Computed example of a mutant assay.
Amino acid sequence: MTNTDTVSRLDFAQAAPKAFKALIGFDTAAREGLDPTLVELVQIRSSQLNGCAYCLHMHTRDARKAGESEERLHMVAVWEDAAHFFTERERAALALTEAVTLVASSGVPDDVYARAAAHFAQEELARLLALILTINTWNRIALSTAKIPGAA
Rank of each mutant, 00 (worst) to 15 (best):
T145N: 05
H57W: 15
M75Y: 07
R61A: 14
A13L: 06
A83F: 02
Q122Y: 00
E70F: 09
L143K: 11
R72N: 05
I141Q: 02
K147L: 13
A19P: 13
R140K: 12
L73N: 08
K21P: 02
R61K: 14
V108M: 04
E80D: 06
V39M: 09
A16Q: 10
L128I: 01
N139H: 04
A77Q: 14
K18N: 13
Q122A: 14
S69Q: 05
K18F: 08
D110K: 09
A118V: 00
T134F: 03
A29H: 11
E124K: 08
T137L: 08
A19R: 07
E32F: 05
A118G: 15
I148V: 15
A66K: 10
E71Y: 10
T6I: 03
E68Q: 14
R9N: 08
V78W: 01
H119T: 00
A95W: 01
T6V: 04
E71M: 05
A146K: 05
L34G: 11
V7T: 10
H59I: 01
L73W: 06
G25M: 05
H84R: 09
T28A: 14
M1R: 05
S46L: 06
P17Y: 15
T134Y: 04
L94E: 06
D5A: 14
R91D: 01
A95V: 00
S106M: 04
D11F: 13
R127K: 08
R115Y: 05
A151V: 00
K18Y: 10
L125N: 05
G25P: 01
A22N: 15
D62M: 12
L128D: 03
E68H: 10
L96W: 14
F85E: 01
T60L: 07
A30Y: 08
A126Q: 07
A30K: 11
Y54T: 02
A117H: 09
A29G: 15
V103W: 08
I141W: 02
T37G: 14
E80W: 00
A92F: 03
R140H: 07
L96E: 02
T6Y: 08
R45A: 03
L94K: 02
G25K: 14
T6M: 09
L102P: 01
F20T: 02
N3A: 06
L34P: 11
D110H: 08
Y54Q: 06
S144G: 15
V76W: 07
D110S: 11
K18C: 01
V108C: 09
R72V: 05
A146P: 03
G67C: 06
A92K: 11
W79E: 02
N136T: 00
D5S: 14
E90V: 00
A22I: 00
L133Y: 02
S8Y: 09
N136M: 03
F12L: 08
T101G: 02
I24S: 09
H119R: 09
L34R: 14
N136R: 03
G150A: 10
K65D: 10
R9E: 06
